[in-house]
Amino acid sequence: MKVSELNIDQLEEAASMLKAIAHPMRIAILNFLEDGNKMTVTEIHQKLQIEQSTTSHHLGILKDKGVLCSKREGKNTFYFLKHERLSSIVDCISQCTV
């Protein structure tokens, strides 16, 4: 699909998602969730070595903007990429910063 084929609502949604991703910790979260990985808040905050409340805040933003989804299993909530294609954004960023 070409940008010229997108309507204004789709462009607004894409811009909103990119704004949500545009934070170092959120890029790291996307990186952890590549390849269909699912992780809990606890697993993510331990990997990032930041407070759990801060991790929850970042996850909430990503979920609110349609970047992530979550699924509750027992006491745990697992987060994962809403669209696996989003992992290509992380790949692109990684290649562009070398």
Rank of each mutant, 00 (worst) to 15 (best):
R26L: 01
H58V: 03
S70H: 03
A22Y: 08
A22G: 02
I29V: 03
V90S: 02
Q46G: 06
L81P: 05
I27S: 01
I44L: 05
Y79N: 04
R26M: 01
I61F: 00
A15Q: 09
T54R: 08
M17H: 03
A28Y: 08
K38Q: 10
Q49R: 15
T77G: 02
D9T: 06
L59I: 03
V90T: 07
I61Y: 04
I44T: 05
N31A: 08
S56A: 14
V98H: 11
S70D: 08
S87N: 08
Q52M: 10
A15K: 07
E43W: 04
C96T: 13
M39N: 01
S4D: 13
L81S: 02
K38S: 05
V98N: 15
Y79Q: 04
A14T: 06
H57P: 00
I93M: 11
H45S: 14
K2M: 07
N7C: 07
Q10L: 08
K63P: 02
G60K: 04
S70L: 04
E34P: 00
H23R: 02
E13F: 09
S16W: 05
I93W: 10
C69Y: 09
K63A: 07
S53M: 10
K2F: 09
I21H: 00
R85H: 14
K75H: 10
A14P: 00
N31H: 12
H58A: 04
L62T: 04
R26A: 02
H57M: 15
T55S: 08
C69V: 12
C92G: 09
E84H: 09
M39C: 02
H83N: 13
V90E: 03
D35Y: 10
K82R: 11
K82P: 00
H58R: 01
F32M: 11
S94E: 15
